[in-house]
């Protein structure tokens, strides 16, 4: 049941291809802004707990093709569970950028009013959530899919995690259960080669996690080359299958971690470090669209300006928002005013 899907989809319109690029540019612009703000006041030296954005910061630059190609198929009522590196997927899923930035800055205006942080984003409007624990975001997606199935809706759930998560127990429990109950779920593995500093060749017994799908009786495909249109094609098939009630699929996407595992990671363990910027998927896709005659300088300038406006607004809004009231640190442990 395992096949290689690297062929570029033939049926994407020029507008769809431009939209994929637009999403990727928006994500990169957002991540670049967070990178800038994160490091703006960590000096002298590097104090991880200091500054406007404190704490660990896992940015998704390089993985934009996964988010853009995947979320192009999703409706707001579809669920998506992500990981400790969630921004690209949150943005492509349609999360309000002010609420996202507000949470990253730890402000009252954030999605979780500053209780969650960038690894713990929960957005009922887009049915988006993420978990900071590797592989533990899979089970909730099953439950969301179960609820959609029981409600008789056409909605589906997508569980996204890194290639390291495919070696953890929850991945295997969830593939079995989803296939057994024919749940409308898509499992997406973002293979960026690195589990922090451990290369996938040192962690994973098979060259492609897609082959593991066969062990659970579901289709598995691997998308090579961080190709947004190939992602779009592979996900499209899985979405059709899930919405039709034919059960789950597994898709592994070979993507790229353009920056460190987290900010402050010097990446000394990464032998190919010097060549990484050459593999940036965004300039590559721009060139592809220019060569195809569907992207002009003016188009690109407009997209870049649009993304800049969106992101600047979100960041400025977050920085101007009030910080949470320390006297309310215990608020939200339980539902207030609820029976018992």
């Amino acid at each position: 049941m395992t096949t290689e899907t690297t062929e570029v989809a033939k049926d994407l319109s020029a507008a769809q291809r431009q939209e994929l690029l637009r999403q990727m540019i928006l994500i990169r612009t957002f991540e670049a802004a967070i990178l800038r703000e994160y490091h703006a006041d960590k000096s002298p030296g590097f104090d991880i707990g200091k500054g406007l954005i404190p704490g660990e910061m896992h940015l998704s630059a390089g993985q934009e093709p996964v988010a853009a190609g995947l979320c192009a198929h999703l409706e707001s009522g579809d669920a998506l569970t992500a990981t400790h590196r969630p921004h690209h997927l949150a943005i492509a899923k349609g999360m309000n950028l002010r609420a996202l930035a507000g949470e990253i800055f730890g402000r009252e205006s954030g999605l979780g009013h500053g209780r969650g942080g960038h690894m713990h984003l929960f957005d009922p409007a887009t049915h988006f959530s993420c978990s900071g624990i590797v592989a533990e975001g899979f089970p909730a997606a099953l439950g969301q899919a179960f609820a959609f199935q029981r409600a008789g809706t056409r909605n589906i759930a997508v569980a996204v995690a890194g290639e390291g998560a495919a070696n953890a127990g929850p991945f295997h429990e969830c593939l079995n259960l989803a296939a057994l109950w024919k749940l409308p779920v898509i499992f997406v593995i973002e293979d960026n080669d690195w589990g922090i500093s451990v290369h996938r060749s040192a962690s994973t017994s098979v060259p492609s996690n897609a082959v593991r799908a066969a062990g659970y009786g579901m289709p598995g495909v691997r998308v090579e080359n961080n190709d947004v249109e190939a992602v779009h094609a592979a996900v499209g098939e899985a979405v059709v299958r899930a919405r039709a009630g034919n059960g789950p699929s597994l898709i592994e996407i070979h993507t790229l971690r353009l920056w460190g595992h987290f900010e402050g990671d010097a990446q000394g363990y990464r032998p190919e470090l010097a060549e990484v910027p050459d593999r940036d998927p965004i300039p590559a896709y721009e060139k592809q669209l220019r060569d195809a005659g569907i992207l002009t300088d003016a188009d690109l300038a407009e997209m870049t300006a649009w993304a800049g406006t969106q992101v600047d607004d979100a960041v400025e809004h977050a920085k101007a928002a009030p910080t949470p009231n320390p006297a309310e640190a215990l608020k939200y442990v339980f539902v207030e005013g609820a029976q018992s």
């Binding site: 899979f138 089970p139 909730a140 099953l142 439950g143 969301q144 179960f146 929850p170 259960l177």
Partner: peptide, 20 residues
Amino acid sequence: TPISETAFIGLGIGAAVEGM
């Protein structure tokens, strides 16, 4: 359920999040 406590307890969480 299968003997997969992580999967089915987490499934319960996801279903609860969606209103069940």
